[in-house]
Design a protein around this nucleic acid. Structure first.
Length: 496
RNA sequence: GCCCCCAUCGUCUAGAGGCCUAGGACGCCACCCUUUCAAGGUGGAGAUCAGGGGUUCGAAUCCCCUUGGGGGUACCA
């Protein structure tokens, strides 16, 4: 058997969608597992909706996920590659024109001069009669003279493919045998617009054939389109590839995942601090499982285990909580320098947003990792977690400053005493191990619960009730700022 | 409407006739750890395997029907 050739063929009519990324991933996994070739092709024939900005978002996103294509357009400084260039359909027009001419010459397709208004009226009539929509065939039997007459009027026809009669069946790798009666396809369908640009069902077949795809792995939403494609492959004299229709990713209400109901743009997940390892891991486990109890897997481990035959048939609801859990798992697995590199842009974003006043150094960030790593569900949580380290002053209010079991007087008392204890520790011993004993001793001496004292200090120096461990936090802040913030807290309390 | 696909805890899933009094994970709830928050550990609640018929000594697993859900039905992709 020859090595598989598979592809992802996104349409640049929107930012990279979770579903597209998942389909791309499964194609990639299959190619890598089988030693096949993974191809990327841009289906940009919908000129009205396609844009170069979306194209860039898609290419960059797939590249970011680590899904390197063996053949396809340029990305991130890497050139286009592969023997079947170009990889944008609008640059492959001659190839479709040639195929269209062949179908026309063989009378397997014909020009259709129906106007959008006529077609619309037909559709409404069918609907009113409670019949399935279907092209009525008005132009199917036009004589050569009639066609010539219309063309001489300056009318340009769309090209319709003759669907004929019969049954089309195929063996889908994930769904098994599927059959469609051609009479349910909606009549002869258009393959080229009146303006001469080719339509999806046509380009996808011409390209999959000329790029020698062996397997077409795509979303289930294309299952009902498959008979049209098979008819076209056959009419054009091309071998029919194998199909594998993946289950859809669903909104919580179990409809096809959509931007209206879910967050679908990969770029949004990236911006929130999800990392590629987690996204890939999560997406691979939507509609597929190893069959073992392994859950946290690298892309290479997934490649090793992946089988198209064990892909699910039923749709899978996208569960963001599970993604976040996996994200945390992967963040904790990253090596420190790598994590610092990935964290930096998120700290910069905090600065740009004015939520912090200066940028920490890489060394400072790396030093924070032990207390910060296990507290990050996403990289974007960094500012919320320890942003208080990089601001001139924290916002303090007299209510949160007072621990639950304490009153204002006790709090002032406690903070003042804590300040003295911290001063007594001295500058050179300002370390977590040195700070803890005296503060515990202080609490005990005064009959306070250590937790209450610690909470008072925590809020005073960070402005928050939830932070990384207190003594590490004090050290990260530095002696001077700790004392200054304690003083400020005392002032705020004095005013209360 | 018509065509096609699908159906195991709330969610992602294991399960390919006996190993299932249905396993794991997320989430949830307790407890442990603990200065808060996390992380981690332990335990728990949670699925009459959509329902009904078959086939079989035996069915979550095979077949049929019903129900429910989804997708498609464009001169979009």
């Amino acid at each position: 058997m020859t090595a598989p050739r598979v592809r992802i063929a996104p349409s640049p009519t929107g930012p990279l969608h979770i579903g597209t990324a998942r389909t791309a991933l499964f194609n990639y996994l299959y190619a890598r597992h089988t030693g096949g070739t993974f191809i990327l092709r841009l289906e940009d024939t919908d000129q009205a909706r396609s844009s170069i900005a979306y194209e860039k978002d898609i290419l960059d996103g797939l590249h970011w996920l680590g899904l390197r294509w063996d053949e396809g357009p340029e990305v991130a400084g890497e050139g286009a590659r592969g023997p079947h260039a170009p990889y944008r359909q609008m640059e492959r027009l001659p190839s479709y024109a040639e195929a269209a001419a062949r179908l026309l010459a063989a009378d397997m397709a014909y020009p259709c001069f129906c106007t959008p208004e006529e077609l619309d009226a037909d559709r409404k009539a069918k609907e009113a009669a409670k019949l399935p929509p279907r092209y009525v065939g008005r132009c199917a039997t036009l004589t050569v003279e009639e066609r010539a007459a219309r063309e001489s009027e300056g009318r340009r026809g769309a090209l319709r493919f003759r669907v004929g009669t019969g049954v089309v069946g195929f063996d889908d790798i994930v769904r098994g045998h599927v059959e469609f009666d051609v009479s349910n396809l909606g009549g002869d369908f258009a393959i080229v617009r009146a303006d001469g640009t080719p339509l999806y069902h046509f380009t996808v077949v011409v390209d999959d054939a000329t790029m020698q795809m062996t397997h077409v792995i795509r979303g289930e939403d294309h299952l009902s389109n498959t008979p049209k494609h098979i008819l076209l492959f056959q009419a054009l004299g091309y071998p029919v590839p194998q199909f594998a229709h993946l289950p859809l990713i669903l909104n919580p209400d179990r409809t096809k995942m959509s931007k209206r109901k879910s967050q679908t743009a990969i770029s949004d997940y990236i911006a929130q601090g999800f990392i590629r390892e987690a996204l890939v891991n999560y997406l691979a486990l939507l509609g597929w499982a190893t069959g073992t109890e392994e859950e946290v897997l690298s892309i290479d481990e997934i490649v090793e285990r992946f089988k198209l035959e064990t892909v699910h048939k039923g749709g899978a609801v996208f569960d963001r909580e599970r993604l976040e859990w996996l994200n945390g798992q992967w963040i904790r697995r990253l090596d420190p320098d790598d994590l610092v590199d990935r964290l930096r842009p998120f700290v910069e974003a905090e600065l740009a947003a004015g939520r912090i006043d200066w940028m920490p150094s890489d060394d400072e960030l790396r030093g924070l990792l032990p207390i910060v790593g296990e507290r990050l569900p996403t990289l974007g949580a960094i500012g919320d977690l320890v942003g208080f380290l990089w601001v001139k002053d924290v916002a303090l209010d007299p209510v949160t400053l007072v621990p639950k079991r304490w009153d204002t007087t006790t709090t002032r008392d406690g903070l003042a005493a804590a300040r003295e204890a911290i001063v007594a520790v001295g500058e050179v011993s300002f370390e977590a191990d040195e700070l803890e004993p005296p503060l515990r001793a202080l609490a005990e001496a005064r009959g306070w619960k250590a937790g209450d004292l610690f909470m008072a200090i925590r809020v005073a120096v960070t402005g928050r009730t939830a932070t990384p461990p207190l003594f590490d936090t004090l050290v990260a802040l530095g002696r001077d700022r700790v004392l200054a913030r304690l003083d400020r807290a005392l002032e705020v309390l004095a005013g209360a």
